[in-house]
């Protein structure tokens, strides 16, 4: 049985282009706006959707995503509501893969077994849990694989050839290569280094490799897409979202339009990459 993620990457490979993976925070700044944005993303050119599960203490995230998480929590977002949002998204979209990304504690408190059943039923395809390295695979990774969800792991510049096999061992769906040692939303990566890193990872795995951290516009996305199977963009979208909030932090009338415009621009960059 293949997952939506596997099918989507296979289809794009046949098309000969890289995937555009978008990251937005579920519930930012409120449930309804965030759902409206998620629903508009595929049409704007997102091939896979990553939805953040907000957490009070996101230790690997930069200011943009930290603030997005706090806005969502302030707006009343919970893990229960994030799953509800996926269910609503699935009512009129059955083929765009959805990956939930966040930190372990809310899942642990929800209850791992119950979470996996509910996530699968809601239409979630994969999980990225930042603070679960392979050393803690028994916690969630192995149960998730058993439940039929992809468990996508981050590989970083500090993951050397000796460590890569351990990182890739239970990874499925795709590999998320974090192109810089640092938090989200910082320095742009050097495209030639990224291509070399992707080649290094591909020597160890047949899985698609998506690259994130530091992608801000069509140009940087095009450069990354030339050497990777996917390009992840997050902080840049969240910056636009934030710029379209009113003084009280509520979503302005043009929020969805502004964010999807940037997505469309970046999607054009990804699609025009020479491979």
């Amino acid at each position: 049985m293949t997952t939506r993620i596997e099918r989507r990457f296979a289809a794009l490979k046949a098309e000969g282009r890289a995937a555009l993976v978008t990251f937005t925070m579920s519930g930012d700044p409120d449930y309804a706006s965030s759902l409206a944005l998620a629903k508009a993303l595929p049409k704007a050119g997102a091939d896979l959707i990553e939805l953040g599960m907000p957490f009070t203490d996101p230790m690997a995230d930069g200011v943009a995503i930290q603030a997005a998480g706090l806005r969502a929590l302030k707006g009343g977002q919970t893990l229960i509501k994030t799953l509800a949002m996926v269910r609503e998204f699935r009512q009129d979209n059955d083929d765009t893969p959805i990956v939930l990304m966040g930190y372990y504690n809310p899942i642990y408190i929800y209850g791992v077994d119950k979470f996996l059943v509910d996530a699968k039923a809601a239409g979630v395809d994969g999980l990225i849990v930042v603070d679960l390295p392979p050393e803690e695979d028994v916690e969630l990774c192995l149960p998730a694989l058993k439940a039929g969800l992809n468990f996508i792991r981050l590989a970083t510049p500090t993951t050397d050839d000796k460590r890569l096999p351990a990182v890739l061992n239970n990874t499925s769906g795709f590999v998320y290569y974090v192109s810089i040692a640092g938090i989200t939303g910082t320095a742009a990566p050097d495209a030639s280094k990224v291509t070399a890193a992707v080649e290094r990872i591909k020597r160890h795995t047949k899985l698609p490799v998506a690259v994130g951290f530091g992608v801000r516009n069509a140009e940087s996305a095009r450069a990354i897409a030339a050497g990777a199977d996917g390009v992840v963009v997050g902080s840049a979208l969240i910056d636009v979202l934030r710029a379209n909030l009113d003084a009280e932090g509520k979503a302005g009338p043009n929020m969805v339009k502004a964010v999807t415009a940037l997505v469309a621009d970046i999607a054009a960059g990804v699609r025009s990459a020479k491979r």
């Binding site: 690997a60 603070d131 390295p133 050393e135 792991r153 500090t158 993951t159 974090v178 640092g182």
Partner: peptide
């Protein structure tokens, strides 16, 4: 345990 981001694991 060791519940940290992959970037820190080698360290």
């Amino acid at each position: 345990g060791r519940f940290v981001a992959e970037t820190l694991m080698p360290n």
